[in-house]
């Protein structure tokens, strides 16, 4: 089936299988591999995107449900050579090791700071509780969020 949606501000069309996820459509049909696929069951957050401005796991949205809606992926946050301030903070704080979790964490952090520009420690932990990182131990990720909030 055909779906039409706005992705990173651009009107896009994709031919999708009825049962496929928005994550699969973004990566395999729309040429946007920034959102990562690690679990396909909502546990890891590496596929986090904004759907109509709301943070969701793209693996749990049926691509067909995104028809007519607005999606922002990590690719839509900064441009090549012009990273988003949150991306810069992640680099500066050393919050990136293998980098697999980074796109999801960046999107989740952008969402957090949009709602709460000066988040408390608890708010940061709560906001990122749906994003798993197997490398950093999280301390540098929290540093990055604090840095981005400054």
């Amino acid at each position: 089936m055909k779906i039409e949606l706005t992705v990173n501000g651009e009107q896009r069309e994709a031919d999708v299988w009825e049962g496929e996820s928005l994550l699969f459509a973004l990566r395999e049909k729309l040429g946007l591999p920034g959102s990562k696929n690690a679990c396909e069951q909502g546990e890891c957050g590496s596929c986090s995107v904004l759907l109509d401005g709301t943070l969701v796991c793209a693996c749990l949205v049926l691509a067909a449900q995104a028809d007519g809606h607005d999606v922002v992926t990590v690719e839509g946050l900064g441009a090549t050579g012009e990273p988003h301030p949150v991306q810069e903070a992640f680099v500066e704080a050393g919050a990136v090791q293998c980098g697999f979790c980074t796109p999801g964490l960046v999107v989740a952090t952008v969402d957090l700071l949009a709602h709460s520009p000066q988040p408390s420690e608890d708010e940061i932990r709560e906001a990122l509780s749906g994003n798993l990182c197997r490398c950093t131990g999280y301390a540098k990720i929290f540093d990055a969020v604090r840095l981005a909030a400054q």
Binding site: G42, S48, T54, L55, V56, C57, L60, A108, S129, G130
Partner: peptide
């Protein structure tokens, strides 16, 4: 419930 992403959906 779950995480922010799960609670949003």
């Amino acid at each position: 419930v779950g995480s922010p992403q799960i609670r949003n959906r």
